[in-house]
Amino acid sequence: MADFIPLDYATLRLIWWALLGLLLLGFAVMGGFDLGIGALLPFVARTDQERRLVVNTVGPTWEGNQVWLIVGAASAFAAFPPLYAVSFSGLYLAMFVILFALILRPVGFKFRGKVADPRWRQSWDWMLFVGGAVPALLFGVAVGNVQLGVPFHFEPATLRPVYTGGFLALLSPFALVCGLVSLSLLVAHGAAALVTKTDGPVARRAARYGSLSALVAAVLLVAAGAWVATRLPGYRIDSIIDGNGASNPLRKSVHAAAGLWLHNYRALPVLWLAPLGAVAGALLGAYFLRARRGAAAVACTTLAVAATVLTFGAAVFPFLLPSSTVPDAGLTLWDASSSHLTLWVMLLVTATLLPLVVLYTAWVYRVLGGKVSADSLEDNPNAY
């Protein structure tokens, strides 16, 4: 059957690594608006009408933005089963916390307006805050733990993954710094959307909090980069990997040493544009937020978020999930993928459906463009 597939196995593996990264980047940018606005809700809105304004800036679009995360998780399951197995079995408690926080968001959106009692609405507003801030923080913590390496190995006879860590161990200093990078970037990203979509006190407060958050993100990005360059153990494959060989994560040799996550940057200096773009986007985002230039701020925070994801991807390539306890067992795109045929069929399906998702998203944002105001809420009985 593989003889009829026009792309070789190694190429398909590389394509699916890139597609998985694209889906995660799509969620970071699109879903990042929602998470950042949720984290800002108690601080930029002080009356029920102001909170309704904030909620309705993302109310019509947040469900569509979740598609990127759902498709990304499904793609990881189908394209890289060992990655899904290790992540969702060994890290189930961390995953549960993230999922619980994300579940609070649809409940908060649907229930906050059902009762006019201010205490009822304020309680659900805090649920929306948790549903935005906690995932924004923990997604960054997850990225930090990937760079640190996760404590797992495989049983040689059965290749059954064995996770040997605990939940609290995931909250290491470096991982928390990465979590704060994620949280501050997404808060700035959400603030830029609020400046674009609202006027008055909400926009002013969003500009103030967002510009400060963007500056914090720039400082933390530089600090995290220095940590990676000088102290953080990185991983590098020593043995030659057959990109067309069958998937088996134990057929390679890996060693760890400080500074190895910069190996790809030394080999291909153009990659330095990614971290430079992340820091520049954060700094310019702070400037345009302070000036309340919404469209420019959105462009800059989008650059900062996307470039941060690319910085991470370029550093860890070709690893998907390094192992801190048995480095040779770390998962890479070359030895943790599904079969040749599976990747090909998935690519055909994705090439058909992903453009439809992009077109639909663009259409929704065009139809729902413009500012949210008190008058528009009064005119729309279906507003939250």
Rank of each mutant, 00 (worst) to 15 (best):
R293K: 14
H340C: 08
G294M: 10
T230M: 04
L289G: 04
S247E: 07
V187W: 03
T198K: 05
M30H: 07
A304D: 03
G259D: 03
T47F: 12
V54Q: 11
L331W: 08
G31L: 03
L83V: 15
L23V: 01
L341M: 14
A274H: 01
D117L: 13
G59E: 11
V150Q: 10
R52M: 14
F312G: 09
H153I: 04
A142D: 01
V58W: 07
A299R: 15
A214D: 11
R51N: 13
L341F: 15
L185C: 05
S184F: 15
T332S: 12
A217R: 03
A296C: 05
K371T: 11
V71S: 04
A207M: 08
G26C: 06
R121H: 12
A191P: 06
F33W: 11
T308W: 06
G64T: 02
A218G: 14
T302D: 02
K114Q: 11
T332I: 13
A157H: 06
T325L: 14
D328K: 10
G36A: 08
M127I: 13
L347C: 10
L268K: 05
F109Q: 01
L170K: 05
V305D: 08
T230V: 01
R121W: 01
N145Y: 12
L359W: 10
T57Y: 00
L19S: 05
V222G: 05
G144W: 01
M30T: 10
F317P: 00
H263Q: 12
L353P: 04
I103H: 00
S239L: 13
V162H: 07
L41F: 13
I37H: 06
L220I: 09
L137V: 06
A383R: 12
A217N: 05
G21D: 14
F27I: 04
A214Q: 10
M346W: 07
F111Y: 15
I240F: 08
A94N: 06
W17V: 01
L53Y: 02
G108A: 10
A136F: 11
P249F: 02
W126D: 09
V141P: 08
V372K: 02
W17K: 07
A278H: 02
K114D: 09
A296L: 15
K252M: 06
A224H: 02
M30G: 02
A218W: 00
P106D: 13
V150C: 09
A136L: 15
F88I: 11
G26W: 00
Y360S: 10
F288A: 04
L40M: 15
G108Y: 03
D238T: 11
L23W: 06
G179A: 13
V130C: 12
R13F: 07
W16L: 08
V130Q: 07
I37V: 15
L331S: 06
M127D: 06
A116F: 01
T198D: 04
N380S: 15
N382K: 14
Y84T: 09
A297N: 07
V54L: 14
L128C: 13
N145F: 08
V279W: 01
A304S: 14
D199K: 12
A188C: 12
I237D: 15
T352M: 15
